[in-house]
Design a protein around this nucleic acid. Structure first.
Lengths: 283, 283
DNA sequence: TTAACTTTCCCAAAATGTGGGAAACGGCGC
DNA sequence: GCGCCGTTTCCCACATTTTGGGAAAGTTAA
């Protein structure tokens, strides 16, 4: 909601939407204080890991009192910490909670047990374990070297854990997306058709459906030079132990010039076997 | 506050507190909805990484409506994610934010550059980098092996990052505590005297002050068999680049039987040199 | 499909967040 | 150590919002 300014043009009006509605009619209700407080967290970026209370007032339209009220509540919860006078950064609670997730995440544990061997089989190549949360795909773990030598460059994926991936692009995401239950995909399509089209997934429902069905049939997505001009990626879904749903995706990333190597089918097979091993270890 | 039920007995009444006050008088104001919503995050533990909405209602005294309202707000912010019907877990946003902290944290970056060499110098031993946030000490990074062989056992500190350390116990914390500006220590003493006493820091202000002054003079804390019966730890403060304040602490952990080794003074010197290197690299 | 459950929606009443300013606090320079 | 200034909390009347009970809508499993 926050990313869609009123001036943006919607590609197509949703069927059933009231036409001729006055411009200022708010589509969504005004956010309550709860949501407003959590917007504070949006303000932190790699470029601005420390934020001043004045900036919050300015950017989010808070009054002094409100800004400090929110900051205090978040500080007391440990989500924020005072960096110095008037400046606040993200707090220790986030690191603690993330550790909790790391400890509790069965996918990560299974991956940590299985992936090292897989990663070691191919030098100058890394393995990514990704997961879907709600409607976001995140890299959960990387195994193998931090960087790959490709196209004469050294391409590194540093600090992979927590790296957000676009939901409608990239092998790791598409493989997950395609494995979702159809109604869920349909719901996503209705909500985010424009994004899907922009990502080249298809302009209408039929096209998207067909594209994803194809991926589901293949059981893999291979991209060459999409994520990075010099890299290739092969991705397969990781299913839950009972096989009923997707738990995430397993991706092998290598130099584009190394793909297809001697036996791409074998590479794929090995990846799928590993994904099955991970599945088998899920709680 | 949530951990202090009304039935608990306070060890000692704070000086200046109104005596003879009727039992039901709330010492602190009733928490607002902002704080209440954030209490939801407290409910997640390693044993219970997934929580049901019913449990929230029961444990926190919410009504159905309120519970779902809070959960929805937290979900929309990405702090929570729906695991399955009626069950929620911590959300992707936490992993993302933690990554942001990892990227932005100068202490961690400096540590990652300097610590590997230090860790490699002594086998069967690890190095911990810790940091103070607000009034919590957290392990920020571990370098070296995941486990130490000591006392015939294999003692592992797995997933060190995010591990919370008690503020008034342990070499890593004490070294930081002692390096804090005196007014800050004094404030902590007033607020948490009982905890300090329980941790053996001293029963009154004079004792605490003296103890910490001693640590400050030494520039290190060494404990043997405190954190774990079979382990020894030597900890030194890491100062900010200008040396004006503490940025964290650097700790060498080793088997208790290996300390003191040939030259404990050299070990300490090396640690302090490394801490200085880290300081020099701080932004 | 039914059945059981989860989740959202609705609305009047009441509780609580809001905001302006003043007061307390705390760091920094002199 | 003292005083200055920006930061942070406190205060309180007002009204905007949260609240909660139940009903409706949505989702999953059988």
């Amino acid at each position: 909601m926050s990313s869609q300014t009123p001036s943006q043009i919607r590609t197509e009006m949703l069927p059933g939407a009231t036409p001729e509605v006055p411009v200022e009619a708010p589509a969504v209700a005004a956010p309550g204080s709860l949501v407003r407080m959590l917007e504070v967290l949006d303000q932190f970026t790699p470029d601005q890991p420390v934020i001043r209370v004045d900036d919050l007032q300015a950017r989010l339209g808070y009054t002094k009192s409100t800004a400090y009220r929110y900051v205090k509540a978040l500080c007391d919860a440990g989500l924020l910490a005072q960096a110095s006078q008037g400046r606040y950064s993200l707090g220790p609670r986030i690191v603690e909670l993330e550790r909790l997730m790391r400890i509790a995440d069965p996918l990560l544990q299974a991956g940590e047990a299985v992936l090292p061997e897989l990663a070691a089989e191919m030098p100058n190549s890394m393995v990514l374990l990704c997961s879907l949360y709600r409607d976001k795909v995140l890299c959960v773990h990387r195994e193998g070297p931090e960087a790959i030598e490709a196209g004469g460059r050294r391409i590194s994926i540093l600090r992979a854990r927590g790296l957000p991936l676009p939901l409608f692009q990239g092998a790791a995401s598409l493989v997950i997306l395609a494995s979702l239950p159809t109604p869920r995909i349909r719901a996503l399509f209705v909500q985010r058709q424009a994004e899907m089209a922009a990502a080249g997934l298809g302009a209408d429902w039929a096209a998207v459906r067909q594209r994803l069905a194809g991926i589901r049939r293949d059981g893999q997505v291979t991209t060459v030079g999409r994520f990075n001009r010099h890299l290739a990626a092969v991705s397969v879904p990781v299913r839950s132990r009972d096989g009923a749903q997707v738990a995430g995706s397993l991706t092998r990333i290598m130099p584009a010039e190394a793909y297809p190597g001697e036996d791409p089918a074998l590479l794929l097979q090995r990846l799928q076997a590993c994904a099955a091993q991970v599945s088998a270890r899920l709680a």
